[in-house]
Nucleic acid binder design. Structure first.
Length: 569
RNA sequence: GCGCCCGUAGCUCAGUUGGAUAGAGCGUUGGCCUCCGGAGCCAAAGGCCACAGGUUCGAAUCCUGUCGGGCGUGCCA
């Protein structure tokens, strides 16, 4: 149940009954301080101003008109706020009737464009954020009932692949089936580039390969395909290690749109959008005119006839709207491409490619290494994602070995993987910033504060409680009785799950879910300190129910972020 | 030059169509285990929300300007 929506609806009805114009916003949100209750409605203040009425009097009339039944109590506080406090019996019922996440998104289709590594090279730390933020959104939206179509728009086309395919062809002719050389994509890429720079005849062949590829040459296409398959399998290994839900079925790379590019140009031309400038086909839109009077154009086709990322992205929008019937298309892409997307969406609008779909760029800042410096290895190269994840697991293993010597070697290894990977993902997902974010091993693995290990620990602790008490959590029945302040706060937090998830979906911001999980774990820890659970007596079953709801909330919540839990750690 | 984003506690970050006394965590200091896992809990200290104006009953939030930082900017993606 979306409690916030429920209260908001009731508050808006009451505002209208109190004399406000229909549609007056109640603005119900969590209370800013505990002494103001659980939720507060701020709408009466603004409404009173517009009506030139006394805010406290209007708020009081609203309170009098509130049809809350036994859901909550409310009162006017301060200059005209309405404080709402949920009834303990209501909270108990909400938890007892909770049958899981409500599928409020049923019937809507959302395309999410994320990860999109460049297959010319190995995945590096720069691909991490898009991959895990996109994946968390995909999982969360799916849980809410949306039909999610994952689109991994991999970079598998363009001039760079000429030299790679030419080089692979040479390597294969020399006897190596290619697999050996391609084990290290980074080295293979450097080698191809070295030849391209030093050997003019090779460079010429590489350029010829690009042309032949675009013309649909079978032989070159076969070599290209072998290269892509191997590179893609590297990516899949990273996805599997990272615990990301992407599969080969979600791949629809730049090459997939090759045959649509001429059509896009034709359609834009028919729409009267194209201008030839210095041999290139451009779209000049007035909204991209700066104070200096110049317009930053969108180049759809280069003067040599080649295509650019704008062209491919236009074709992709066209496909996603027409073929995939998307209601929303979410681009989880680096903030540095903000201008590109503003232009892309503007052109799509002009060309009618967006239909009735909402095209949204959800940007994020670059990940910086410790100390706020660019994330690089000692020799100055970009760090491979595999190396980063391996280090995370290694670091977690050290901590686990120290803190959990009671676990066997296999279990320690499993816990280290779950904790290490979870720490990396959560550290990223818990931040809202569109600006850059600083990667800090110590903070994410410190096992204190708003981190994945803290949440995983809270979960494991509840499982331990069940084991110690000989409780089969699944068999528990009944309704929890909420009594103490700690129980109230815990139950309230649990009841806020649905509204939190809907907020994540609406704004494409997973950090709201992280904040909720941290609130939940914190509320549980306080409850745990103050309310004996296993003590026999009238509170026994009720508190076990709260424990179960908390454990479920943490496990499924982390699951929506793509993070696992363990029963012991 | 033009454009976009950002500036909140020593550090990393929250702050929900503008709302009450700006909140967490880390770090610091001090408490709490004969008690369900101390990877925990409680408390204290720490802020002219970059600066200056403006709008408003009310501004970290909206507008203008200044300073500082990051990024982008017609044929890479």
């Amino acid at each position: 149940m979306n409690v916030r929506d429920l209260l908001n609806t009731k508050a808006e009805a009451a505002l209208e009954a109190a004399g406000c114009p229909p549609g007056t916003a109640a603005i119900v949100g969590p209370a800013t301080r505990p002494e103001f209750g659980d939720y507060q409605a701020n709408g009466a203040l603004g409404a009173a101003k517009r009506m030139k009425a006394n805010p406290r009097e209007l708020a009081q009339r609203t309170v009098d008109a509130m049809a809350l039944d036994d859901i909550a109590t409310c009162a006017v506080t301060g200059p005209g706020f309405i404080s709402l406090t949920l009834a303990d019996t209501f909270l108990g019922e909400v938890l007892a009737q909770d049958t899981g996440i409500e599928r409020t998104g049923a019937g809507q289709r959302i395309v999410i464009d994320y990860s999109h590594p460049n297959l010319a090279k190995e995945m590096h730390v720069g691909h991490l954020r898009s991959t895990i933020i996109g994946d968390a959104l995909a999982r969360t939206l799916e849980a809410l009932g949306y039909e999610v179509v994952r689109q991994n728009h991999v970079g598998d086309w363009g001039t760079g692949f000429g030299m790679l395919v030419a080089h692979l062809g040479d390597v294969e002719r020399a006897g190596d089936p290619g697999r050996e050389e391609l084990k290290d994509l980074e080295r293979f890429y450097q080698e191809a580039r070295r030849r391209f720079a030093e050997d003019e005849s090779f460079a010429e062949r590489a350029r010829d390969v690009v042309v032949r590829l675009q013309q649909g040459d079978d032989e070159m296409g076969a070599i290209w395909q072998r290269y892509i398959d191997i590179s893609m399998s590297h990516c899949q290994e990273v996805y599997d290690l990272l615990g990301v839900s992407l599969t080969p079925r979600d791949v629809r790379g730049e090459s997939a749109y090759n045959d649509d590019l001429d059509t896009v140009v034709e359609e834009l031309s028919e729409a009267g959008l194209l201008t030839e400038d210095a041999g290139a086909l451009c779209v000049f839109l007035d909204e991209f005119r700066g104070r200096d009077g110049k317009i930053t154009p969108v180049i759809v086709r280069k003067s040599d006839g080649g295509y650019l990322y704008h062209s491919t992205d236009l074709a992709a929008v066209r496909y996603r709207v027409r073929e995939l019937a998307a209601d929303r298309v979410l681009y989880v892409v680096d903030a540095r491409q903000a201008l590109h997307f503003r232009q892309l969406f503007a052109v799509c609008k002009e060309a009618g490619y967006d239909g009735s779909a909402s095209l949204e760029h959800h940007p994020f800042g670059v990940m910086q290494g410790p100390g706020g410096r660019p994330f690089a290895t000692r020799d100055g190269n970009v760090m491979r994602l595999t190396d980063l994840l391996t280090e995370a697991i290694d670091r977690a293993r050290e901590v686990v070995a120290e803190k959990s010597p009671h676990l066997g070697a296999d279990e320690q290894a499993r816990v280290a993987r779950v904790v290490g990977i979870g720490a990396v993902k959560y550290a990223d997902l818990s931040k809202n910033r569109t600006s850059d974010y600083v990667f800090d091993w110590q903070a994410m693995l410190s096992f204190d504060g708003n981190t994945a290990p803290y949440l995983q620990y809270a979960y494991a602790r509840i499982q331990s409680l069940f084991r110690r008490g000989g409780v089969d959590a699944e068999s528990l029945t009944g309704m929890p009785t909420i009594d103490t302040p700690e129980e109230h706060m815990l139950a309230l937090t649990l009841a806020r799950r649905q509204e939190t998830l809907e907020q994540v979906a609406a704004q494409a911001m997973p950090h709201f879910l992280c904040a909720w999980l941290y609130d939940l774990a914190s509320a549980f820890m306080r409850f745990y300190e103050n309310c004996p659970v296993l003590e026999e007596g009238p509170t026994h079953n009720s508190r076990l129910l709260l424990c179960r709801s908390t454990a479920d909330g943490i496990r499924t919540g982390l699951g929506l972020l793509g993070i696992e839990t363990v029963e012991r750690m």
